[in-house]
Amino acid sequence: MIHITINGKVVQAKDGEMLLTVIRREQIDIPTLCHHEAVEPSGACRLCMVEITKPSWDGWCDYVTSCLYPAEDGLIVNTHAPKVNELRSSILDMFLARHPKSPEIRQLAAEYGVMKTQFEEVVDGDNCILCGICTRICDTMGFKAISMVGRGHGKEVAPPLNMAPAACVGCLSCAKNCPTNYIEYNMKNGGLTIWKKDFEMIACTECGATTITKEFAEYLSVNRDIPFDYFEKCDACHRKELAGTMGRIANWDREARS
């Protein structure tokens, strides 16, 4: 265990633990767009920037992305120093220029006082900030169906060969974790379409509500030992069943006591 100072408060941390993890544990709110605790940090969005210094640095300080900076003993961290706030607003200013239509970016920028970008707005741009959270999550899930394609201003997230990816099971982890809700999918008539691939959803045997895609259920039952029929009931019906089970247990208890 080591000790670091965050905003004047001395806190404990594990050696080598990333600063952002410690900061979040202390319930200090700093914005991030590309962070997800389940995947490797990548430092893409730059918003988790903090000011760090040490008594031995002779008054100097440094500005680092806390998601990628390992905690060291004696480090003094300031998460909302004036310079840090300034850096964050200029980063958000640039985000706003690239993605002026994104409600998520606009809201975050507004929180940092950036109502309108000082740069020229990209008119025909999209809302993908290229943070790579979708590709990293897809890798972690084990499907590796999508990846970063191209580079420079032509860089984008895409399935291989720009065709429906064979490896995708329609788990929706990419779309649901996208910080700007950019990844499109269409769920209707018991089906799902994402990345130009069509899936059939499993319908709940009790109420008919859709649960997850057949491919995803098969993957989970084969690779994660979750029985396939678990997915043949929706969340609501699972809970109803659970209530019934709990009721029976309560009855047994009552009978046992009497």
Partner: peptide, 20 residues
């Protein structure tokens, strides 16, 4: 590209990423 992905056991998405 598909064969390369299979033979080298690299996901097709990564092969495509490098190719582009």
């Amino acid at each position: 590209l598909e064969q390369t992905s299979e033979v080298l056991d690299v996901p097709l998405s990564k092969v495509f990423s490098v190719s582009t």
